[in-house]
Write a protein that binds this DNA or RNA. Structure first.
Lengths: 246, 246
DNA sequence: GGCGGGAGTTGATTCAGGTCAAATAAGCCG
DNA sequence: CGGCTTATTTGACCTGAATCAACTCCCGCC
C-alpha cells in the first residue's frame, strides 16, 4: 500500500488513536484494490468478511427487496463503510457498488475484531464512529417519515449548499440516485425540482442555484436534528473529509 | 436501588462484562425513578445528560418536525435507550415518553463516558450495542423505503407472531402507535387491517389471528435483512428480554 | 459528424394513502 | 352504573406520488 494512502487512513478518526503496532499489523493484512465503475463490492446478506474503506472514487450503499431497490447512502473518500456488520460478524444489511472507478482498502473482519478487543483506543474510536452512523440513519429516517418529498428535496439542496458554502453548485450525484436516496422516483424528483422554481430555485442540468435561501428555508425548515451537522452516511456533501483530515 | 434491579441491570449485555468496581461506581451515581404514564422523559434537541434504562413499563421514542410527529421505537424492559447521544455528548435526536407507568434508571452521561474510557469490557459492550441499534434503524429504513404500508403491516404481524410463537396474539401497543411506527395514519392502518382479511388475518379489537401464515408470508416476504432477528429498537416484540436475561 | 444508449423530462393516468368529518366503541373514573 | 374522554372505525373526498409511455437531451464512441 502506498505511504500516502496509509497516512490518509491513519488520519481517519477511526484509526487516529490506535496503537502504532496494531495499526501496522492491521494494514499488513489489508488489501488495496482498484475497481471499475458499477462494480458490486458487497452483496447484502453475505457474511461481513471485510471492513471497506474508500480512498478514491465513490461508493453507493443500497438495499433491495422483492425486485425493488433503494439507495441508502453514498460514501466518499476517505471513509469506512459497513463497520457495524463487521463488528457484529453479521450479514451485511446493504449492498455496495462503485459509482465511478474507485480504490478500496479491505481489512479482514477478523483482524478488525481482534484489534478492537485488544486496543482500547481503537474500541473507543469505533464507538464514536458507530454512534455517528447511528445518528445519521436516525436522521434519514426522520427525514423520510416527517417530511414530504418536496420538503426533503428542499432540505437536501439547502444542506448541500451549506456544505459547499455557495448558493450555486453542481449536484454531486446523478438525479436518479438522488431520487432513490430521497425515497422518490426520478420522475417525481424532476417534477419536484420544477416545483421549487416558485421558491427561487433554478435548475439547469446538474447546475442548481438557490436564488432565495430565505424562501427555501421557510419551506424546508432545516434543523440539525434532521439535517446535520454530522455528515457520515448521508448522500454526498461538500468538501471531502480528506481536506479536513490532512 | 433495589438489589433485584441491580442484578437485572448487571445482566444486560451492556453491563455484563463490566468490571465489578466500575459497575458499582456507575450505579452509585445513578437514580432510579418511577414515572406516571405519558410523562415526557426526554425532549429532542436537549443535551444528552443521562443514559436511560427502562426497568419496568414501556417507553416510546418519537420525533417531531414542523408540527408532525412520528414514533421511532418502543422500548421495553430491561433495555437502555439513547446510548448514542450519550456517548457522543450530543443532543438527543429523539424524544421519549412513558406509555404506562414506568421505572427508569438514569445514569449521568459523564459517568458513562468515564467508564467507557476506562473499562475496555464496557467499551466493547457499547460497541456491540451500538452496532445492533444501527442495524435495527437501517432495517426500519429499508422497511419504509422498500415496502408498501400493507406489506409493512403484514411483515410486522408475522414478526410479532414469530416472536410470541403463536398465530394468535394481542397487539402489544395501541393501534395509533403502531400506525405511527409503520409510517401511516391510524385510518390507513385500520383499512389495511381490513384489507388483510383477504389474506386470512382476523382482527377483533387488539386480538389478531393469522389464519393462513403461508399466504401472509407470500405477501410480506419477510427476510432477516429487514425483519430481524435482532429486536432492539423495533416496536415491541414478544418475550421480554427480562426472561432471557434472568 | 452521425449513431446508440442511457439519463432526464413531460404528459396522461392511476392509485395509495392522507385528510376531514362523523359515528362507534372502549376505557376509565367517580 | 352512568358519564366522560380517548381510541378506532367508517365514509367521502382529495392529493401526492407512482406508473406507463413517449420524447428529448446529452455524452461517449465509432
Amino acid at each position: 500500500m502506498r505511504n500516502a494512502d496509509l497516512r490518509e487512513i491513519r488520519a481517519l478518526s477511526l484509526f487516529r488513536d490506535m496503537d502504532e503496532d496494531h495499526f501496522a499489523r492491521l494494514m499488513r493484512g489489508a488489501y488495496h484494490h482498484s475497481f471499475p465503475p458499477q462494480m458490486t463490492l458487497i452483496e447484502e446478506g453475505r457474511p461481513a468478511d471485510f471492513l471497506h474503506i474508500v480512498t478514491d472514487g465513490a461508493v453507493e450503499l443500497f438495499a433491495g427487496w422483492n425486485g425493488r431497490e433503494t439507495t441508502m447512502a453514498v460514501v466518499r473518500p476517505v471513509s469506512a463503510f459497513i463497520l457495524a456488520a463487521c463488528i457484529n460478524d453479521a450479514p451485511y444489511l446493504m449492498s455496495a457498488r462503485t459509482l465511478v472507478g474507485s480504490r478500496i482498502v479491505m481489512i479482514p473482519g477478523t483482524d478488525i475484531r481482534d484489534s478492537f478487543a485488544n486496543d482500547a483506543g481503537f474500541a473507543q474510536a469505533i464507538v464514536r464512529e458507530l454512534a455517528r452512523y447511528y445518528r445519521s440513519v436516525v436522521r434519514h429516517t426522520k427525514d423520510l417519515k416527517l417530511r414530504s418529498s418536496k420538503e426533503r428535496l428542499a432540505a437536501y439542496l439547502l444542506k448541500h449548499s451549506r456544505n459547499v458554502e455557495a448558493p450555486e453548485f453542481d449536484l454531486p450525484i446523478e438525479k436518479r440516485l438522488l431520487a432513490s436516496y430521497l425515497g422518490m422516483t426520478p420522475e417525481n424528483l424532476s417534477r419536484a425540482l420544477k416545483g421549487l422554481r416558485d421558491d427561487g430555485v433554478t435548475v439547469e442540468g446538474h447546475k442548481v442555484r438557490i436564488g432565495d435561501p430565505a424562501r427555501l428555508t421557510a419551506l424546508a425548515r432545516p434543523t440539525t436534528l434532521i439535517d446535520g451537522p454530522d455528515r457520515s452516511g448521508s448522500v454526498e456533501d461538500g468538501p471531502s473529509p480528506r481536506i479536513a483530515a490532512s
